[in-house]
Design a protein around this nucleic acid. Structure first.
Lengths: 216, 216
DNA sequence: ACAAAAGTGTTCTTCGTACACCCATGA
DNA sequence: TCATGGGTGTACGAAGAACACTTTTGT
């Protein structure tokens, strides 16, 4: 017996800093197909593709050719998850910095906006991806996926605040992040109608997992 | 295009406490088919099965009808991961307390024993499952999956030491674990040729995730 | 009496957290 | 000169880590 294998991708990003006139707090957004029940990007696994290759192809179809981070999240295979052909979905998570303008027919929507439910079990899939990012923020440098190459400390803090859904203390945040030793200063400055902000980058452009240590 | 979906299960357990004459340290063991390149239990996903249902069926086939814990780990789908039919494997992790005697043709082997490699990509799959348990030990009560209903503090500590591969300080371990409030005393005692040990159980027989907090 | 594992506290250091003001720039 | 966000330090409490001896039982 064979089933159809789908690869679906939850593309996450942060709403742009100041779309000019926008309020203040940035929020996590996800890329959806702009049809009646909105749906995640996805496609059938190709003949000779590995799972992550299929995920990259799907991202190409929405105009995303250079995601900053991709990882597999989970697979969903309830027999009735979708009418018609039995389909198992292997879902992935992708992070991309803004600005990013998707192909026609695709749009950004706040990830927590559940006013109109997504198609099939895509709400569950989106939740699983959000949980993954939230938890990984605590023990990795995964925030690099949502930031440009160079960024200010405030921008980094905005990533944490948007994903975790809470505000953080500026002094404690900087102390903690500096102590991890994952960042370096680029020497550059971001200017604006205020004091210039030092630019930073992640020392490693790869995912780095930190040793945890709650329970030992 | 359709592919075959396999559900493979990494069944983990601890070597029994004192098989009589065994040395001391307990080790993590995994259940393997006792054939030339040993392999993990697994089978093709059934017509009307959800993924975890298939995992439970596979476990039934090795004689394991009441696993203490099951969760999905990851999916593997490289086109060349296995000769013949294109097969995507959705892998699961199962934990079971000892004693457990598997069906004929299956046996326990130390999970870190890589003398004879497993079939196909099953070594990678095993590694993924071990990593999952190791990390989850730090922020959940997942140890319940490897313990009988009632256990002593020393037995609990043995689980941590075996999975993490390090020895822990007895006083700090007890202080920390008590502080989590996940345990309760049963009132019973385990007797031996030494001072009796108080028996404990987990207050919740379900997986409980702890709030972490490394990076804020 | 001896062997074997159970049980228990203190000190020190590290980390988290709460908290408020001055600085540099552009307009 | 004013508005805006950038940048900094301290004091307190909680939690982690190092560390050794006494207790209770079976043989």
């Amino acid at each position: 017996m064979t089933v159809r294998v789908h690869v679906d991708v939850v593309v996450l990003s942060l709403s742009p800093a100041s779309d000019e006139g926008s309020g203040d707090a940035r929020v996590v957004q996800t890329l959806l197909r702009d049809v009646d029940p909105p749906r995640l990007p996805g496609d059938v696994l190709g003949e000779a593709e590995d799972l992550d290759e299929a995920a990259r192809r799907v991202m190409g179809e929405v105009g995303l050719h250079e995601p900053r981070h991709v990882e597999q999240v989970a697979s969903f295979g309830a027999p009735d998850r979708m009418p018609g052909r039995r389909t198992v979905s292997v879902t992935h998570l992708a992070l991309v910095p803004r600005p990013f303008v998707p192909s026609d027919g695709w749009c950004w929507r706040p990830a927590t906006d559940r006013a109109t439910p997504l198609a099939w079990d895509h709400d569950r899939i989106l939740d699983a991806a959000l949980d993954r990012v939230r938890s990984k923020l605590s023990y990795s440098n995964i925030a690099y996926g949502l930031l440009p190459e160079e960024f200010t400390m405030s921008e980094l803090q905005e990533v944490y605040e948007a994903v975790l859904g809470m505000t953080l203390d500026k002094r404690n945040f900087r102390k903690k992040v500096r102590g991890l030793g994952l960042l370096e200063e680029t020497g550059g400055m971001r200017r604006g109608s205020h004091r210039p902000a030092a630019l930073h980058r992640f020392a490693s452009p790869e995912l780095v997992l930190l040793d945890e240590g709650p329970l030992v």
